[in-house]
Design a protein around this nucleic acid. Sequence first.
DNA 1: CACCCTAGTGAGAATGAGTCTCATTCGCAC
DNA 2: GTGCGAATGAGACTCATTCTCACTAGGGTG
Lengths: 169, 169
Amino acid sequence: MGAPTGPSRRSTSSRRHSGPDEATIDDLHAAVARRLERHDHRYTRGRRHLVETLARVARPVTLPQLADHADDLPQSSAYRNLEILERCGVISRIAGTADHAHFELAEPLVDHHHHLVCVSCGSLQDVHLDEAVEALVDAELAGAAAAAGFTPSHHSLDLHGFCNDCETG
Amino acid sequence: MGAPTGPSRRSTSSRRHSGPDEATIDDLHAAVARRLERHDHRYTRGRRHLVETLARVARPVTLPQLADHADDLPQSSAYRNLEILERCGVISRIAGTADHAHFELAEPLVDHHHHLVCVSCGSLQDVHLDEAVEALVDAELAGAAAAAGFTPSHHSLDLHGFCNDCETG
DNA sequence: CACCCTAGTGAGAATGAGTCTCATTCGCAC
DNA sequence: GTGCGAATGAGACTCATTCTCACTAGGGTG
């Protein structure tokens, strides 16, 4: 729980927010392919396209935003593939107050992180917290969950407020 | 940020999850009326009905669930009033992966808390964390937000997993 | 009390994000 | 090359939520 050790954590670990370089992209594709295989799914061109675009933008995006960054992205295929990729643990869907859901690469493929959620425009950006704080939160939540008969899998922590654009605009 | 001091925190502070007694219900209505007045809205019968039902169930509920607990709740009015109550800071809307949004009384009117989110059935229940942990999280988030040019207002922390029903069922 | 005048109501229509259908195409195995 | 299940994509469809609009309620004002 929290920050599980994933297959993609090893190479060029210092770069986080800028788009991935070619070596890490290959690693990513390999990791995704493995996950799809495990679920008896093929890693087709369309799915590669989705994963590559998500890796490139490196922030949670909606489907329309995704379509802006990727040419020729048929809606029904995109939604279907996002769902399959989600079930295989490759991406995660973030449902907020915004009318569209946001999608990003799932946690074992990228570092454990949380989100700054703009209550004005609905945009999301990533934040990374200190590991000690994460551990403390996990421990605290685990205790509370046990008391409620709840079996935890992972936590999510959002900070709501105004992004730079909405604050100054 | 976190657990702001609200007008309803004073009386019978030891009861949290069981439905409110008559004294606290009166306090609640008074606090809600004040908030609505401040926004030039009336505290009508339908709105009282909503607030009272939300206080009674004392957990986040969807609109259909709300309708089960409250007779004669016209859909369009319910949605409209929930939106107005949300804008006045009386209730908060929790948009998750479930197909319906969940609604509950907003934070200054109830204690600061977080949610256990069942990834199987989409149900929600409340959890309360240690204040020291909350403070630490807030401090950590505030630092990260400042670095990103983000103006924070409040945080939300969800624990995802399986509720008692879905784990055993 | 009679009259306004605005906020609120609720039934039904409209919206639109997301899902489903189905005929076609792809890609791996043999 | 052939077979066959998985994948594709255009379009129909679903349904939670929002919008419209004619109507009602309720609180000032004279």
